[in-house]
Simulated assay, not measured.
Amino acid sequence: MNTMHNLRIERNPLGRLKVQTPDGAVHEPVTAVRAFPIQTPAANISLVGPSGHEVAWIADLAGLPPEQRALLEQELHQREFMPLIQRLVAVSSFATPSTWTVDTDRGRCQFVLKGEEDLRRLNPTTLLVHDSHGVQFMIRDPLSLDKASRKLLDRFL
């Protein structure tokens, strides 16, 4: 496993990430994976080769040259899909399963919450909501939601 010193990260002609490690070895395609995507999204990034083994470790994205950092941030954003719930518009029922209509950072959507166990507290200020299709939604801080949203959410907590 190599650390980020002297890594060269770029895209191959097919648009996939490739990395050249300090020993001169080129690995492609590689997949960027966050070790702790919620707690430390800009740190602890693993570059995994096609065999599924880690080929490089990036302790902190801030330590990379700007063009390589931008490339990895773009790749991670495309790979991860976790909309942030900004407002609860409506809940069909206070018993599960229930259909939720929410406004997210990616627009309005509707999903089914199968059971109360699909609403998880990650830490005192962060909630993770799993819909019936396995999509994860995040509520960064329930107290920052508007009063009507907090009232709906409180029924499930």
Rank of each mutant, 00 (worst) to 15 (best):
L7A: 10
L7E: 06
R11G: 14
L14Y: 15
L14K: 15
L14A: 15
L17Y: 10
Q20F: 06
Q20M: 08
D23P: 04
V30Y: 02
V30N: 03
V30I: 04
T31M: 06
A32C: 06
R34A: 09
F36R: 12
F36H: 11
P37S: 01
I38E: 04
Q39C: 01
A42N: 14
N44A: 09
V48L: 05
P50L: 15
G52D: 04
H53G: 13
V55Q: 10
V55K: 06
W57E: 13
I58S: 11
A59T: 09
A59F: 13
A62E: 08
P66C: 03
E67Q: 07
Q68A: 09
R69W: 05
R69C: 11
A70V: 05
E75A: 13
Q78C: 14
F81D: 03
M82W: 13
P83T: 06
L88K: 02
S92W: 00
S93A: 09
W100V: 02
T101D: 09
D103H: 07
T104K: 00
D105S: 02
R106N: 05
R106F: 01
R108A: 14
C109H: 01
F111Y: 07
K114C: 03
K114L: 05
E116F: 12
L119I: 02
R120D: 03
R121M: 06
R121I: 01
L122F: 03
L122D: 00
L128N: 08
H130V: 05
F137P: 15
M138W: 13
I139H: 12
R140H: 15
S144R: 15
S144C: 14
S144N: 13
L145K: 04
D146P: 10
K147M: 10
S149F: 00
F156D: 03
